[in-house]
């Protein structure tokens, strides 16, 4: 599942599938949670868009994807050898 580069997966792939399946299930439940009668979003002037359906879901997903892709690109700029500061 990762580019970790050594050893077999520490969790059996079948179990990972079950875990990921469960994650997707509760992801769906979390969005449907907005349909609960007790769901009363807090109103804040200027932040009405936060209360649109599923906002936190896509915002969380997109934030993380962009974060990781940007960070991966950042490596080109900032990554050096492990002993970079120890060399004279």
């Amino acid at each position: 599942m990762s580019d970790h580069g050594h050893g077999p997966p520490s969790v059996a792939p079948e179990k990972v599938k079950v875990i990921v399946g469960f994650l997707f299930f509760i992801c769906a439940v979390a969005v449907l949670g907005e349909l609960l009668p007790s769901f009363h979003p807090h109103e804040h002037a200027g932040l009405e868009f936060v209360n649109t359906f599923g906002f936190h879901a896509w915002y969380g997903f997109l934030s993380c994807v962009l974060l990781v892709l940007a960070a991966a690109q950042m490596r080109k700029l900032v990554m050096r050898d492990e002993d970079y500061y120890d060399r004279d």
Binding site: H4, L36, W58, A71
Partner: peptide
């Protein structure tokens, strides 16, 4: 609900990035 959405979809993003091989090793 909104906090769970934020966190669970962040987890989904992690799975997505790993599956796509985009997660920086």
């Amino acid at each position: 609900v909104t906090q769970l959405q934020l966190l669970l979809y962040s987890a989904a993003a992690f799975v997505f990035l790993q599956k796509m091989g985009w997660y920086p090793p």
